[in-house]
Design a protein around this nucleic acid. Structure first.
Lengths: 363, 363
DNA sequence: TCCCGTGTTGCAAACGTTTCCAGTCAAGAG
DNA sequence: CTCTTGACTGGAAACGTTTGCAACACGGGA
């Protein structure tokens, strides 16, 4: 410390003209130019301006040119709210996300937004914080906003509000890595099972028998699907699975941390660990660090899902990879299809085991 | 490979009822219940329903109770588009972001969205991909959507479109870490200079003289402000700065990588490196890895901005820290203030040097 | 008894578009 | 020369709300 004086000395940003006397910026003052003024200045009917600007065919070249000139001159920008009300289409997609803190979602949301924007749609993101009440409110909010479609990564597949929000006639829906029986919605599903099968088989072939598996609860598809691949790998190798080494129940780091601690204390201790998702990865790696166990040496470690930040620093971590950006793009395409009136469909994204240093050792 | 058969075998998700014959889901079919039907069923006027539901004082208890019951019964959900058109308020904030790929923005956007939602606002995120043409289009889009306010992390402070987008009467604006002269907008500015000054002073005291600095171009406030702290630290220590060790010009990893390579080849080589931002951190750390230089041993390293993923794996990296979530919250509060008609103001967020292992060594 | 405020309700005009319908005009067909 | 056709244009209704204003009933004071 003792730097306080300096901090203050450096603290004058200067350059922002903060307090102008008029506060015209407030929500009111704002006289925006409407189609009516364009029509008046061009001395034509409202309807003609509308047609000229919206590309309607029944407009003479002269009319279109003239209206466009005057619209530009006045700086006319159509009111999307009014257009939406009249046309019944908002050109907006709602994106309901379970937990935007998960860095994979930033990537996914970005590629999705990109694709949507290229098609003239905007995206409203609402975060449920892993809470089904919030999620329910978010669905309601998006309906009130009359979004043209919803892309959703649900908190759980058995929330009591789900039927209300997903059933019946409504705007198209795309589920991200979720299976809900009996509703008609599109979905992007990752084929986790294949990648996990590959990964576990690799471990088994390397001699591992005590393989721990820590991941979130099985009320969502990814957990069940990973479990499928996990189980099948043992079956195919004709080896007994070790249910006592599995902790299936929480996506948060705390859950993973505490269960990893317990598992690492067992005797015999697991020789390999699979961590499913962002939270599990954080929790497990913290537990290993606590016990000064180095992954790739004393224990083999595989992360399910290649989280974006891994590329930067922990580029030695073996992962089950799926193309997150492709998932985002695909979700956008499915929702666009749905709004075009096409039938819902499921799109499968493959996954694959990527071997790096961390999955060695341990035996 | 050779697992193809398995992959296919595992590939049947089952459980999603995909192709129902009716595709009621499309944009049309959708007869939503309006205020008119509520009024009809309750046998009162439209206006009474509106008043009853919106909390208007001139409504009898009986009327309010009855209308609410019937609205619930019919599952009435007000049309926000119509409300917006009539009232002139959309309860929507636009969030213009330079590059949503930067993981700090996920955090920032999340805390901001949280705060806004608690106040009844939704957030529309638009990404400029570091391109000023996109940014300009994004501003226009948000204006057409009649958002009540815009929070923006500008690509550059001297884009030719800026005046048009920021000047004149318009909805309130909050700039994130940007200074634009002559306009009246709120801003959240981080006090990078203080943290950088602390960090550099620490290096100088440890004996470093050849301190390299790699960061983005100085057409944005953070670079200039960091530079301020950097320069001042040398001045205060009465030591000559080494401009030839500074690479100020690009936020992307490629720029940082190539310049780090060059700098590391100099003779004498820098004994310490500061990396400003996500891209710089990635580029520099890759360059070090290439040359098998370990940070904290052969070279001292400090990252400007504690990026979220660092906590997980590279928890030995010294950083200049600022509270990203606080920035998001503060941005939300400033925009809410602005919509309340209050004058724009600037909010300063402090930063501080956090010493860890990576800033040792090198001398 | 009359008048007036008060508390409540209904009517109708906006908000800024799109789109249906009817009308105009000129050109070509009969 | 008249009729039809086609290309274009203008008028007005509608989308679902909110809100200013008028109307009404009721009770109390003069």
């Amino acid at each position: 410390m003792g730097e306080i004086g300096l901090a203050i000395a450096l603290k004058s940003p200067g350059g922002l003209e903060v307090a102008s006397e008029k506060s015209e910026t407030s929500r009111s003052g704002n006289q925006r130019v409407t189609i009516r003024e364009v029509a008046a200045k061009a001395e034509v009917a409202l309807s003609s301006v509308s047609r000229a600007l919206s590309g309607h065919p029944d407009v003479s070249d002269e009319m279109r040119k003239r209206v466009k000139e005057i619209a530009d001159e006045l700086g006319y920008e159509p009111n999307l709210v009014a257009q939406s009300l009249r046309s019944g289409v908002t050109r907006t997609i709602g994106f309901v996300v379970r937990d935007i803190n998960n860095p994979m979602f930033a990537l996914l949301a970005r590629s999705c937004e990109n694709e949507l924007r290229r098609n003239g749609y905007s995206m409203i993101i609402v975060n449920s914080d892993g809470n089904i009440e919030n999620e329910n409110r978010n669905f309601s909010l998006l309906r009130r906003r009359r979004v043209d479609g919803i892309i959703a990564s649900l908190v759980s597949e058995d929330s009591p509000y789900l039927r209300k929000n997903l059933e019946g006639p409504r705007s198209p829906i795309v589920l991200l890595d979720r299976e809900v029986k009996g509703i008609s919605a599109s979905a992007v599903l990752a084929d986790h099972a294949a990648g996990v099968h590959e990964a576990v088989t690799h471990l088994i072939n390397a001699g591992h028998r005590e393989i721990a598996f820590i991941t979130g609860s099985n009320n969502v598809y990814p957990t069940r699907n990973r479990l499928l691949g996990f189980t099948k790998a043992f079956e195919d190798a004709n080896i007994e699975m070790r249910p006592d080494l599995m902790a299936i129940g929480g996506f948060d780091a705390e859950y993973a941390l505490s269960h990893a601690r317990i598992l690492l204390h067992r005797n015999p201790a697991p020789t390999a660990i699979l961590a499913g998702g962002h939270g599990a990865l954080m929790g497990v790696s913290r537990a290993l660090k606590e016990k000064k166990i180095t992954m790739g040496k004393e224990i083999a470690f595989i992360a399910l899902d290649q989280l974006p930040y891994l590329e930067v620093f922990s580029d030695n971590i073996s992962t089950v990879y799926r193309d997150t950006e492709a998932i985002g793009r695909e979700a956008a395409r499915l929702i666009l299809e749905g709004m075009d009136g096409e039938k819902p469909r499921v799109s499968l994204i493959e996954s694959q085991f990527i071997e790096r240093a961390s999955s060695q050792g341990g035996i």
